Amino acid sequence: MDGLQQLGLPVLGIVAAAAITFYVVSFSELSEKSFRDLDKKDYDDEGYKPSPSSRVKRARRKANKQSKG
């Protein structure tokens, strides 16, 4: 039993360290990728577009009336 403890404990420690390292590296890669995607996102082409103000709408209507009439 003493030989099993001497061999089992270091092996268990190595396996635990490998599992922790795997999860830490995976999490850091995922967060880095999401930050990269966030930086690449261009808000002018897609996503939030504010509607034109009432002044802009009024000017468009006025220009349309003048071009027709």
Rank of each mutant, 00 (worst) to 15 (best):
1 M>D: 09
1 M>I: 01
1 M>Q: 07
2 D>L: 14
2 D>K: 07
4 L>N: 07
6 Q>K: 13
7 L>C: 03
7 L>P: 00
7 L>D: 08
8 G>W: 06
10 P>F: 01
10 P>Q: 00
12 L>M: 13
12 L>Q: 13
13 G>Q: 11
13 G>I: 02
13 G>T: 03
14 I>E: 08
14 I>M: 10
15 V>T: 11
16 A>D: 01
17 A>N: 03
17 A>L: 09
18 A>M: 05
18 A>Q: 03
21 T>P: 00
22 F>H: 09
23 Y>Q: 05
24 V>D: 00
25 V>F: 04
27 F>S: 06
27 F>A: 13
27 F>W: 11
31 S>T: 15
31 S>G: 02
32 E>K: 09
33 K>M: 03
33 K>V: 01
34 S>H: 11
37 D>F: 10
37 D>P: 00
40 K>W: 05
40 K>Q: 11
40 K>L: 12
41 K>C: 06
42 D>M: 03
44 D>G: 08
48 Y>Q: 03
48 Y>P: 01
50 P>A: 14
50 P>K: 07
50 P>Q: 10
52 P>T: 01
53 S>A: 02
54 S>P: 03
55 R>H: 11
55 R>A: 13
55 R>S: 15
59 A>L: 14
59 A>G: 05
59 A>C: 03
61 R>A: 06
61 R>D: 08
62 K>G: 00
63 A>W: 06
64 N>Q: 13
65 K>R: 15
66 Q>A: 07
66 Q>R: 10
69 G>Y: 00
69 G>V: 04
